[in-house]
Design a protein around this nucleic acid. Structure first.
Length: 835
RNA sequence: GCGGGCGUGGCGGAACUGGCAGACGCGCCGGAUUUAGGUUCCGGUGGAGAGAUCCGUGGAGGUUCAAGUCCUCUCGCCCGCACCA
C-alpha cells in the first residue's frame, strides 16, 4: 500500500510521552517561561484556581481544576494578554495536628513535606504557573500579614471579642463558624456540635451585609446559583422593630416582625429561652422553678433539633403579660424552643392566624387565634382554619387600618408606630458575624496580649509576626499545645512592659484564604501585605475557578475582606473575582471518589501510564466544566489514541512540510484541498468561540478531533496541496497547545519551528475561507425532510423556492396536492406546506 | 416545605438565536494487516421494517409551516437552604 513505508518510519519515532513531557517541563523551567511581571503596555489577565490544602496528594478534582485554569491561561497568553497564573498552599488547618498526634510528626514538618510532594506532582502536569510567586499561608512571611490585617480590622472596630453561645466540636476540640456546621455536625469529622458559652473573636461581617448583597448585582460573570446561595445566606428582610410594656415591670419587650400588618392579630408573645430578660421576669414568681427547668432543658437541645421544622414546638407560659401598644391588649408572654436568640431581637410577636409556626403552637397550647387579614378565599373563622393564612388580603379587625391591603398595611402600621415613638422600620439579616478564633495550634496566632493592668492590647505592627513556636508537644488531651508553651504565651505588655499573657487562640484558616489572591500580586513584599502598584495592576482576578463547595464560605469571606481593603484604601476594586467558574465533581461509578468507596483514581498513575497531556485532554473533553464528570478509563484511552493519531499524522508530514512556506493565500484550490482549507478555518473559529465565549472545552476538543480526521482523510490524496496541509497542521497544533502543551511543543519543533509554540499568537480565522459558493439545503414537505439540494450561496429566497419545487424527488411527492405555503430560511431550508 | 439544576442511543456527551436530533469520543459489529494477541487502518452502528417509509429527546397536553429548544400540567434524580419571625 501507498503508506507502508512512511508508516513504518513513523513507528520508529513513537510518541514517547515520558521523555517529551520531562524534556519540555525542564525547558520551560530553565527558561522562566511562565514568569510574569507587571507590564503597563499589555492588557493584564489574572487567572486563578483556588489554592489547595496540602493534604499530601493531588486528586482528580485538583487535576480538573488546574487543567481548566491552564487552558484559560495559555489561551489568554496567546491572545496577547499579560497573564498572572500563580499557585500556592492553604497550609494551616486541623489535619496537620491530627497527623501530628497519630504519627508523631510536627505539623510544620508534615505540612511542608506534603507541599513538596504535591508540588512535584503538580509539576508533572505541566501547568503554566509562575512558581516564583508560590506562597504558603503557614509561613511567617505570609501570616505576618494575616495578623496585620487582623490588626487593621481591630483598629476599625471590625474585630471584637464577645461571650456568646457558639458551636463547639467536642472531637476537634474547637469552636466552629456557623458556615462550618453542616446539619448540626462538624463539617470535618461529622461529630454532633454542641453549644457553649465562650469568649470568642468575631469579624463584623454583618456591617457589610447590605453591600455584600447589593454588589452581587455587579457580578454578571458569576453563576446565578452561587449568587442565589449568597443572597439566601445573607437573608435580608425588612420589617418593624417595636417595644411593648411588660405588666408589672420596667423592662420592655422588643420584637422584630416582617408582618407589621398583622399586629392586631397578636395573641401571645414569645421570648427565646436564652433571652437575658427571662430570668429577671420570673424571679420570685410562682413560675420560676418550672420556667428554669424548661430553659435548662431547651439549652441542652442541639442546634439541629432546635432549627429543624419537624421537631415539635414546645413552650411554657411565664406568668407575665405584655401590653400590645396598638390596642392596649394584655397578651401572655411565653417561652418557646422555636424562637432563636440570635436572630432579630430574640423575641417575637405571635400571630397564629397568619404564621404557620405560631398557628401550630397556639393550637397545641389552646391560645386564641384572631384573623386580621381577609383573603379572597381564606376562612374567616379561626375554628375553620387548618393552617395559617399567609396569603394576600385586606386588613380586618384592625381598627383604623381596616381595608388596607397587606403591603400598604405594613407601611401604614410602621409609619404609625414611628409617629407614636413605639418602634421603627428596620432591616434584619440572617447573616451572623464571622467567628474566627480557634482553640487550635496550627493556625495564624491572633496578635493580641492580655495585660492585668492595661487589659486587651493589640500587638504593635513592628512586632509582627507573632510566630508560632515549632517545638511543641502534642498531648492527647485535645487541647491546643500553645497553652503549655510558656515561651509563647508569656510575654510583656506592649503598653506598660509588665508581665502579660498572649492570646493562644489562632485564626480560622478561612481568614488566610480571604486575601491570598492579593498577596499573589506581590508575594515577596516584606513591608506590606502587597504593594499598591502590583495590586492596582493585577486585581481584580479576571477568572476564578474552583469547586462550588465554597459558594458561601470562602467566596463570601473573600468578598468581605476585599470590601474592607477597599474602604481602608489598600485596594481599588470592591469585588475580588470578576468571573467565577464553579467546576463539577469528578465521579467514578456515579459517585464522588473516596477512599471508603474504593473508587479513587490516582492522577499519578494516570500520568504514568498515559502522560499529563492525555490526562488533561480527557478531563477537558469528557464533560463541560460546570457539570460533574464521570471518570472512564476507556475514555482516557480514547484521548491517548487521539494524541497518537495526531502524532502520527504530524510526524508523517513533518519533513515534507518543513520547508513549505506558510501562506494565507492559496489561489485556486481543487475541491479536496478547498475542503481542508475550509475545515482549518472553521475549526479556528469554533475552538476560539468555544473557549472564549462559553468555556466549552469539550466541544472545542471535538472540533480539533474533526480537523484531525479531515487532515487524516486527505492523506489518501495522491497529489496533496502541501501549503494547505501545512496550514492545517500548524493550526491544529496551535489550537491543541493549551490542552496538551507538551506533545504540541514537540511536534511544533518537528515541523520546523525554532520558537516555542507557547510563544505564538492565537490563530485568527480568515472569513474568506468560510465563504462557500454552494450550500446544501434541506427541502421539507410539511416539516418532513424529503430532499437535499445544492444551491448557489447567492441564491435568493425566490430562487431557493423555485429550485426546491423543481427538485426531481419533490415533484412526484407533490402530485395531487395543493401547495399552500412555502417557507424559505435562507441558507438553511425550504419547507413546502402542502395538502 | 422553599430555591436551583438536570432527564437526549448501550455509555460520556453534541445540537449557541425554534430550522437536517444524536457532532466528537467510548463501546459494540464486520473486514484488512498480523503466526496469534495487542496496535494500526477501512466500513457499519437510535429503534422498527425486505423496502419506500414510520417511530423516537422522562410523561401528557398546547403554540408553530417547523419544538430537545417556547407555554401549561406532571413524574424522576441531584444539589443548596431549611422554625430566620
Amino acid at each position: 500500500m501507498f503508506f507502508c513505508n512512511s508508516r513504518r518510519d513513523v513507528m520508529e519515532r513513537k510518541y514517547d510521552f515520558k521523555a517529551i513531557e520531562a524534556k519540555w517541563q525542564a525547558y520551560w523551567e530553565a527558561n522562566n517561561f511562565y514568569k510574569v511581571t507587571e507590564d503597563p503596555a499589555k492588557p493584564k489577565y489574572y487567572d486563578l484556581e483556588m489554592f489547595p490544602y496540602p493534604s499530601g496528594n493531588l486528586h482528580m478534582g485538583h487535576v480538573r481544576n488546574y487543567a481548566i485554569g491552564d487552558v484559560v491561561a495559555r489561551f489568554k497568553t496567546m491572545q496577547g494578554f499579560n497573564v498572572l497564573h500563580p499557585m500556592g498552599w492553604d497550609a494551616f488547618g486541623l489535619p496537620a495536628e491530627n497527623a501530628a498526634l497519630k504519627n508523631n510528626i510536627p505539623p510544620a514538618q508534615w505540612t511542608y513535606s506534603n507541599i513538596a510532594n504535591m508540588k512535584s506532582q503538580l509539576k508533572t502536569l505541566g501547568i503554566s504557573y509562575d512558581w516564583d510567586r508560590e506562597i504558603a499561608s503557614c509561613k511567617p512571611d505570609y501570616y505576618k500579614f494575616t495578623q496585620w490585617l487582623f490588626l487593621k480590622l481591630y483598629e476599625n472596630n471590625l474585630a471584637y471579642k464577645k461571650r456568646a453561645a457558639v458551636n463547639w466540636c467536642p472531637s476537634c476540640q474547637t469552636v466552629l463558624a456557623n458556615e462550618q456546621v453542616i446539619n448540626g455536625s462538624c463539617e470535618r469529622c461529622d461529630t454532633n456540635v454542641d453549644k457553649r458559652q465562650l469568649e470568642q473573636w468575631f469579624f463584623k461581617i454583618t456591617d457589610y451585609a447590605q453591600r455584600l448583597l447589593d454588589d452581587l448585582e455587579m457580578l454578571p460573570g458569576w453563576p446565578e446559583k452561587v449568587k442565589i446561595m449568597q443572597r439566601n445566606w445573607i437573608g435580608r428582610s425588612e420589617g418593624l422593630e417595636f417595644s411593648m410594656d411588660i405588666e408589672g415591670s420596667d423592662e420592655k419587650l422588643t420584637v422584630f416582625t416582617t408582618r407589621a400588618d398583622t399586629v392586631f392579630g397578636v395573641t401571645y408573645m414569645v421570648f427565646a429561652p436564652e433571652h437575658p430578660l427571662v430570668e429577671k421576669l420570673v424571679a420570685g414568681t410562682a413560675e420560676e422553678a418550672t420556667v428554669k427547668d424548661f430553659v435548662a432543658r431547651i439549652k441542652l437541645q442541639s442546634d439541629i433539633s432546635r432549627t429543624s421544622t419537624d421537631v415539635e414546638k414546645e413552650g411554657i407560659f411565664t406568668g407575665r403579660y405584655a401590653i400590645n401598644p396598638v390596642n392596649g391588649e394584655r397578651v401572655p408572654i411565653w417561652l418557646a424552643n422555636y424562637v432563636l436568640m440570635d436572630y432579630g431581637t430574640g423575641a417575637i410577636m405571635a400571630v397564629p392566624a397568619h404564621d404557620q409556626r405560631d398557628f401550630e403552637f397556639a393550637r397545641k397550647y389552646a391560645i386564641p387565634i384572631r384573623v386580621v387579614i381577609q383573603g379572597p378565599d381564606s376562612p374567616g373563622a379561626p375554628e375553620a382554619m387548618i393552617e395559617a393564612y399567609t396569603g394576600d388580603g385586606i386588613m380586618v379587625n384592625s381598627a383604623a387600618f381596616n381595608g388596607l391591603p397587606v403591603e400598604d398595611g405594613k407601611k401604614a402600621v410602621i409609619k404609625f408606630m414611628e409617629e407614636k415613638g413605639w418602634g421603627k422600620g428596620t432591616v434584619n439579616f440572617r447573616l451572623r458575624d464571622w467567628l474566627i478564633s480557634r482553640q487550635r495550634y496550627w493556625g495564624a496566632p491572633i496578635p493580641l496580649v492580655y495585660c492585668p493592668e492595661c487589659g486587651m492590647v493589640p500587638v504593635p505592627e513592628k512586632d509582627l509576626p507573632v510566630e508560632l513556636p515549632l517545638d511543641v508537644e502534642f498531648k492527647p488531651t485535645g487541647e491546643s499545645p500553645l497553652n503549655y508553651v510558656e515561651s509563647f504565651y508569656k510575654t510583656s505588655c506592649p503598653c506598660c512592659q509588665g508581665e502579660a499573657r498572649r492570646e493562644t487562640d489562632t485564626m480560622d484558616t478561612f481568614v488566610c484564604s480571604s486575601w491570598y489572591f492579593d498577596r499573589f500580586c506581590d508575594p515577596n513584599n516584606s513591608e506590606m501585605p502587597f504593594g499598591e502598584t502590583a495590586v492596582d495592576y493585577w486585581m481584580p482576578v479576571d477568572q476564578y475557578i474552583g469547586g462550588v463547595e465554597h459558594a458561601i464560605l470562602h467566596l463570601m469571606y473573600a468578598r468581605f475582606f476585599t470590601k474592607f481593603l477597599y474602604d481602608i484604601k489598600l485596594l481599588k476594586c470592591e469585588e475580588p473575582f470578576t468571573n467565577l467558574l464553579t467546576q463539577g465533581m469528578v465521579l467514578k461509578e456515579g459517585s464522588k471518589m473516596s477512599k471508603t468507596k474504593g473508587n479513587v483514581v490516582s492522577p499519578e498513575e494516570i500520568i504514568n501510564t498515559y502522560g499529563a497531556d492525555t490526562a488533561r485532554l480527557f478531563i477537558l473533553f469528557a464533560s463541560p466544566p460546570e457539570r460533574d464528570l464521570e471518570w472512564s478509563d476507556q475514555g482516557v484511552e480514547g484521548s491517548y489514541r487521539f494524541l497518537n493519531r495526531v502524532w502520527r499524522l504530524v510526524m508523517e508530514y513533518a519533513d515534507q512540510i518543513k520547508d513549505v512556506p506558510l501562506s494565507d493565500r492559496h489561489g485556486e484550490l481543487d475541491d479536496e484541498a478547498r475542503q481542508v482549507y475550509f475545515k482549518t478555518h472553521a475549526t479556528i473559529k469554533k475552538v476560539s468561540d468555544d473557549i472564549q465565549e462559553r468555556f466549552n472545552f469539550n466541544t472545542a476538543v471535538s472540533a480539533i478531533m474533526e480537523l484531525t480526521n479531515t487532515l487524516n482523510a486527505y492523506r489518501d490524496n495522491p497529489a496533496p496541496n502541501m501549503a494547505v496541509v501545512k496550514e492545517g497542521i500548524v493550526n491544529l497544533l496551535l489550537l491543541l497547545s493549551p490542552f496538551s502543551p507538551h506533545i504540541t511543543e514537540e511536534m511544533w519543533q518537528a515541523v520546523g519551528f525554532a520558537d516555542s509554540i507557547h510563544l505564538q499568537k492565537w490563530p485568527v480565522y480568515q472569513p474568506e475561507a468560510l465563504v462557500q459558493d454552494e450550500l446544501e439545503i434541506v427541502v421539507q414537505i410539511s416539516g418532513r425532510v424529503r430532499d437535499r439540494i445544492t444551491v448557489p450561496a447567492s441564491a435568493s429566497e425566490g430562487d431557493m423556492r423555485e429550485r426546491a419545487l423543481a427538485s426531481d424527488r419533490i415533484k412526484p411527492l407533490l402530485e395531487g396536492k395543493t401547495v399552500q405555503k412555502v417557507i424559505v430560511v435562507p441558507g438553511k431550508l425550504v419547507n413546502i406546506v402542502a395538502r
